[in-house]
């Protein structure tokens, strides 16, 4: 099994593209890999409840959702308005994850 850091920057406004990428993350998690989905820039809006139904499926499948604190603040999204199961992170947390030797990262 492998560790993955998938980074979504576009969010639900990009329609199918975001949905597909979240679906990719779900497939990887479903196959037993450890997956962190990091939402950044407009991607953070996917953490609003109901905004991206695939996120719930991904979480249920064992994935972790990280939300960029900077992007959320920029977009006036308080953590309390976001889905309960997401983790607010700083870019330092992402850097630490990216530097873990076994982690593979994909930016979308």
């Amino acid at each position: 099994m492998t560790d993955h850091l998938l980074i979504e920057s576009g969010g639900p406004q990009t329609g199918p593209a975001c949905e597909r990428f979240v679906g990719d993350a779900t497939r990887l998690a479903g196959d037993g890999h450890r997956v962190v989905l990091f939402l950044v820039e407009n991607g953070v809006t996917a953490a609003l409840p109901g905004a991206a139904p695939g996120i719930e499926t991904f979480l249920r499948g064992g994935g972790e959702v990280w939300v960029d604190t900077f992007s959320a603040a920029q977009r006036a999204l308080p953590a309390t308005d976001l889905a309960a199961d997401v983790r607010m992170v700083e870019m330092d947390d992402v850097a630490a994850k990216l530097l873990e030797p076994q982690v593979r990262a994909v930016w979308h």
Binding site: E41, N42, M91, A95, A96, L99
Partner: peptide, 28 residues
Amino acid sequence: VLLNLFGAPHQSDLVTSALRLATALLDR
């Protein structure tokens, strides 16, 4: 780490994200 910055400036926060990530990596 190699960050390949392919997207265009002025279209999104991509440049900002790249510089933030680079800074965080360098800080580590």
